[in-house]
Design a protein around this nucleic acid. Structure first.
Length: 595
RNA sequence: GGCCCCAUCGUCUAGCCAGGUCCAGGACACCAGGUUUUCAUCCUGGUAACGCGGGUUCGAAUCCCGCUGGGGUCACCA
């Protein structure tokens, strides 16, 4: 246990520090979010035990070609939105939180700003004879790798026997080169909190590159130096890093650093077993476009509702028909994020969510995402009072109960159905109407401008819309569906055939014949609120000697075009008095034509 | 292919470390009923798993070995 290494109850001990270290090459991947969540939870858990735990965020931007400041900012936002706040790291304010800072003086937290630190460590290694320049070209190395593959063995780079360090150092002054670490001839055992002890033979550990030709450290070097200098005591990361760990340990030993505790977590895959990749979205869009038989940009643009989709059309404007055809043919080729989004909108396609931002746009709640993510690879192992397993919990619970020993060893598949079920349950049963109304509105402001505009046009109806949508919404995005009837013009919807036949033209009396009197009754309602309206409709049914169904269903058809809507009082309140009466007029006229 | 990791219902998992109370429990999904003016909820019930083969033991989902299967990794990416 870690506690043996660093007693928590001893005063003035250095804190337990976990870190999340994304490379800013895109949005925060859902798998990365889980890693961050576990790191956060572990640090928080330390407090519950009376120690000091800190969660540190570091930006690994040593890949000059692929890193961007925008991406870094986006990742910070995603983490903040999830409520995964970091103690040490880039300062950030937004999403209702403020986090980051450098109270321990271990920054900066962008690796690109730590060149001098790495250089000093490189010098130590060279001086100790543990690092040496290498001049092999990428082509040479590729050739040797291929040869190794042919002989069915691992390719291992070793310093040549006749290597002359002094000469190489001289040559390095004028020739491009990389710096390699001289691996000691011994096996290395990783003590992992999840997997136990894993030993790697020396024969599998080669002299890895620690400084690239551009002078930047490689990931392996930077991570070891930064973790040590930032006081990181526990490294929680994905299992894909297990094979890197012995190299990191070798580096730590050479540099005289302590080896932190390690916990390698199982990986997350799609339900079909494939990797959850950003490419999934592109793939889905490509397949849908092909299936729809679309071969031109104009065919796509033509599918947008003219009143909406302006932004999407703009996103596609940069795309030529040739581009589109090339993309369709070439499996490897990918379109931009906005373009893929536009195509999905045109084809009414739901793209698979991969990044945290995707889930946010789809209307998932951050606390639900955290809850579901925590269950992927970890389990509290506790029961509810009714004997069912405890699996619904919040961040406070995680902060109080998370433990490394309950992290599973096997990979898991991301089950969107279960996440959706959790999300729906939280919206429908875990939020009050006001909270939902506010959250939904904030979401719409960012992801559904049209809905936000509708809300702003008459603020008084938003509360009704929210209380109608909440019990029917599985996500904030599909909440719109429950009140979509109110978003269209009074003459902007058509009547569903089946509903018309069943509820307007059949029965005794026929629905269509009930509506005029009902309209008159509604016209007399002074207080246009759900309660009064509901009562007025019930009174009307009773006075006419009709069952509720004989009144309610024709009315629904008249107001929405079909027989499905939220409770009538709410529906009418959302639609409004004028529109309600107008829609009844239109329906009666339509009904007479149809009969 | 080399090296490394893993293996309970379709999926996430509890149970495994301290073998019997497990002909394996929960959740999601699915199926069948029921409540409800529609929809959505909600309630009840059901189908469904210890990968295979050897050991150890009175007894194995639980311990050991092999096989099979899945995954990771083999970059001047992180």
């Amino acid at each position: 246990m870690f506690r043996l290494i660093r007693p928590l109850n001893s005063p003035m001990t250095t804190p337990i520090v976990t870190r999340f270290a994304p490379s800013p090459t895109g949005h925060l991947h859902i798998g990365g979010a889980r890693t961050a969540l576990f790191c956060w939870a572990y640090a928080r858990r330390i407090w519950a035990e009376g120690g000091e735990g800190r969660f540190l965020l570091r930006i690994e931007d040593t890949d000059q070609a692929r890193s961007s400041e925008d991406a870094a900012r986006g990742i910070l936002e995603d983490l903040a939105w999830l409520g995964i706040a970091w103690d040490d790291g880039p300062e950030f304010g937004g999403e209702g939180v403020a986090c980051g800072g450098d109270s321990r003086g271990v920054g900066p937290f962008h690796q690109s700003q730590r060149r001098a630190i790495y250089d000093a460590q490189f010098a130590r290694l060279i001086e100790a004879g543990l690092a040496y320049p290498a001049f092999d070209t990428p082509e040479e190395l590729a050739t040797r790798r291929k040869a190794a593959e042919k002989e069915k063995r691992s390719f291992i780079y070793r310093q040549p026997n006749d290597f002359d360090l002094a000469a190489a150092l001289d040559r390095a002054k004028i020739e491009p080169h990389v710096l390699r670490f001289k691996m000691r001839a011994e096996p290395i055992t990783v003590r992992d909190e999840v997997l136990g002890e894993v030993t790697f033979p020396y024969e599998e550990l080669d002299d890895l590159v620690i400084r690239k030709a551009d002078g930047f450290p490689t990931y392996h070097f930077a991570v070891v130096v930064d973790d040590a200098l930032m006081g990181v005591t526990h490294v929680l990361r994905g299992q894909e890093h297990l094979n890197n760990t012995p190299r990191h340990i070798a580096l730590q030993r050479a540099l005289g650093f302590e080896t932190p505790g390690y916990a390698h977590m199982p990986l997350i895959f799609n339900i079909d077993g494939t990797k959850m990749s950003k490419r999934d979205k592109d793939k889905a869009a490509k397949k849908a476009t092909r299936d729809a038989g679309i071969e031109s940009v104009s065919a796509l643009v033509g599918r947008f509702d003219p009143s909406r989709g302006r932004e999407h059309a703009d996103a596609l404007s940069a795309l030529s028909d040739d581009d589109l055809r090339t993309w369709l043919k070439d499996k490897q080729r990918q379109l931009g994020r906005d373009q893929v989004g536009a195509i999905a909108a045109a084809l009414d396609l739901r793209l698979p969510e991969i990044d945290v931002e995707d889930f946010r746009a789809s209307g998932y709640l951050p606390e639900v995402l955290n809850n579901y993510l925590a269950l992927l690879g970890w389990n509290p192992g506790m029961k509810n009072e009714d004997g069912t397993d405890l699996e619904r919990f919040d961040m406070d619970f995680l902060a109080g109960h998370f433990s490394l020993e309950r992290i599973g060893k096997s990979n898991s598949k991301f089950d969107r159905d279960k996440l959706l079920s959790f999300n729906a349950d939280t919206i429908q049963h875990g939020m009050n109407d006001d909270g939902f109304a506010a959250g939904w509105l904030a979401w719409a402001g960012r992801f559904d401008q049209e809905l936000a505009a509708w809300a702003a046009a008459d603020a008084s109806r938003w509360a009704f819309a929210a209380s109608a949508a909440k019990p029917r919404a599985r996500t904030l995005a599909d909440a719109r569906g429950a009140i979509a009837f109110a978003l269209v013009a009074d003459d902007g919807f058509s009547y569903d055939d089946k509903s018309v036949k069943k509820h307007l033209l059949k029965g005794e009396p026929r629905g269509i014949d009930v509506l005029p009197d009902l309209q008159a009754a509604l016209g007399l309602v002074g207080d246009w609120t759900p309660g009064s309206l509901e009562a007025a409709i019930a009174d009307f049914a009773e006075s006419q000697g009709l069952g509720m169904g004989q009144v309610a269903q024709p009315l629904r058809v008249a107001l929405t075009g079909a027989a499905v809507s939220p409770p009538l009082g709410l529906s009418l309140a959302i639609i409004g008095r004028d529109a309600t009466l107008a829609r009844l007029d239109r329906c009666v006229a339509f009904g007479h034509e149809a009969s």
